[in-house]
Amino acid sequence: MSNQREQADAFLAQMDQFANMMKQSIGVPVLLDQKTGVALWWDQREIKLRFVISVEKIRKFFEALSEGKLLATKCKKSGKILFPPQVDCPDDPEDEVEWVELPKEGELVTWTVIYVKPYSFGHYNDYTVGIAKLTNGVQILAWVRETDPSKLKVGQKVKIEIVKREPEGYLTYEIVPVQE
């Protein structure tokens, strides 16, 4: 069976095909809706949406992934740990941050298995997203390496692993259930 992205692409290709037929017969890409028969213009403009996002101030976080480390920032005065890392302390403009390594053990706070996926995730198999609370109290949201709902429990022990996300082939982090 094809994945959800292939199904979505096949749908768009079919719309294109219908529109091309209509262009040939009546000169314009106007389709008739298959359910209601109303006239629909098939957009002839298409864009690719892809952003460039600054990570300059938090580049240490990404550099550390290749060393197998998960970093956060810590406000020096208040001791508050910030994850996702940010370089400004929200509670005190005078406070400064330093980088600290996060522990890799914790427990599962909540989770869900995603069956119906966004277009840009349509090429993956079903995946589980969860939130883990690490031993220092910091929470982290990531994929969970288990997609059978009956095998997951709120409060169960988990660890964090740095993993390579395929097929894109980049480093990210994952929540991994620990057998108790």
Binding site: Q4, R5, A8, I53, P84, T110, W111, T112, I114, V116, K117, P118, Y119, S120, F121, G122, Y124, Y127, V129, G130, I131, L141, A142, W143, R165, T172
Partner: peptide, 30 residues
């Protein structure tokens, strides 16, 4: 699938969507 994508981005895009593809049903499922 495009609408699912747009609504899934209605949280924190960089830390919770970019790598983990949460959907709107997913957020509430948590």
């Amino acid at each position: 699938p495009t609408v699912v994508e747009f609504i899934g981005r209605a949280g924190n895009y960089f830390w919770e969507f970019e790598n983990f593809g949460l959907t709107f049903p997913g957020y509430y499922a948590l």
